[in-house]
Structure formats: structure tokens, C-alpha cells
Amino acid sequence: MSATPTPAPAVPSASGGSAPARRPRRAVLRAETRLFLREPGNFFWIAVFPPGLLALLGLIPTFREPDPNLGGVRLIETYVPVTVLVALIVSGVQALPPVITGYRERGILRRMSATPVRPSALLAAQMGLHGAAALVSVLLSLAVGRIAYGVGLPEQVAGYLLALLLAAAAALAMGALVAAFSPTAKIATAVGSVVFLPMMFAAGVWLPVQAMPDALATAVGFVPFGAAAEALGQAAAGDWPDWSSLGILALWAVVLTAAATRWFRWQ
């Protein structure tokens, strides 16, 4: 907490205090970062694939023309928030669960339980890294939209960031919940894939929320990434997102986190 520089304790065996407790967690984060970067597949699907998808979609001429069904907005503009959400969903629901479940399955969490550091440090590091990779992807998508297709950057920045943060929390918590209920990494991958498709649909990958029939759009608005798509779309256009969308998103984040915490087993 305090930034006061304190001299290193002469007897480092004395436990307690926040400063010495940070070094182990940093070491865990450093090791997990190296390991994360040694899985280029995950990094590709989280950080490269979604902006790449956006770049490809923009090559289709109809995506670049104003669409009367969207009130004159170009389809490519609605796909920027969609690819942003794709990154969060891939990261949280597809990539994260098999990592966590594998750590439990292989007894890696158990081994860490026998050290002064709680195994939750491993999960926190992995969730942080998956979140960070998704953030890189978000920035790349915004850059592709802006540079290649002239899509304006989000105008309501605070609202956009809030919606993004809540959506990331919901995605990571959903992944943790999948990991909690999957006994093996293989099952986690399979369960993740089952959850993946409806979440992608709700985010508007096949049909942007703005283009959905009213009844469908309303229904999708109750799903975390449907609500997120609406909130991100509004903030991108310069409006403060509807509190109902933000509220639904926040509620999902809280419920999923609580459920993951409740049912997760360390061994």
C-alpha cells in the first residue's frame, strides 16, 4: 500500500507484511506469462483472429456501404464491437478453461498448495493474462476499424471502457465456471465449445444485435454478450450505454463469479 521505501528486513524469515508477499506473486505472474507466450495457438485465436476477421469482413463491398436496415450505418461499424466481444469470448470461454482444469488435473494447483503461496495466485495470473491478451485484441480491432475502414473510435470512452470491463469480467468468470464443472482439460474444451456458440450468436457474430428482429434482440439482451454488444454499440456511437444493459452485464459478472467461486475445487 504505502510507497515508503523500507529497508529489506535483516531476517527475511519473518512472515507477514504485504511487501514480501508480493514477490512470490510476481514470480508466479512472470512464470505464467512465459508459459502463456509459449502457447502461440491461444494467443493467435485471442489476439490475432478477431481483428483479422474484421479485416476480412471489411473486404466484402456490402459491408462498407451504408445499410438502410441499420439506419444508414455501415455494417462494418457494427462488426467492430462484435469482434471485440469475440476476443473476450474466445479468451474467457475457449482458451481459459482447459488451462485451469489442466492445472488442477495435473496436480499443479495441489503442488502450489504446499508452498506459502495459495494456488489462487496461478488462477489470478492466468485470468489476468487472458484478459490482457483480449485487451490487445480489442485495441487491434479498433485500430483495424479505424485505419482500414474509417470506423470512428468509441466516442463515449468511459461508457465503452465500463462495458468492456464488465464484459471481460463476465467472460473470464464464465470460463472459470466451465473449469469448475469440468473434471479434465478435454472436457473443459468440449464444454467451452458448447457455451461458445450461443455466446458468439448473442454477441452478434452471425447477425449484429442492431440488425436482429426486435423480439430476438430483446431476448439476446438478457444474455451477457448480447447486453455487452448493445452497450458497446451505444458507447461507440457516443451515447452513455443503457443502464439496463450495463446492469444485466454486471449481474452476470457477479453471478458467474459467485458460482465459479462456490463450485471450484482445488484438487
Binding site: 527475511p12 512472515s15 510476481r26 508459459l35 502457447e39 508452498t115 506459502p116
Partner: peptide, 18 residues
């Protein structure tokens, strides 16, 4: 972790203790 090297494992676990 399967991709952690012996050196990294020793450094990591050393950092967990005072």
C-alpha cells in the same frame, strides 16, 4: 506446467520462500 523448464521451476519455487 509442461512447458516450464527446470531452471524456471527452481527460480519460481525459490521465489515463493523468504
Amino acid at each position: 506446467q509442461p512447458k516450464l523448464t527446470v531452471r524456471e521451476a527452481l527460480e519460481l519455487y525459490a521465489a515463493l520462500y523468504p
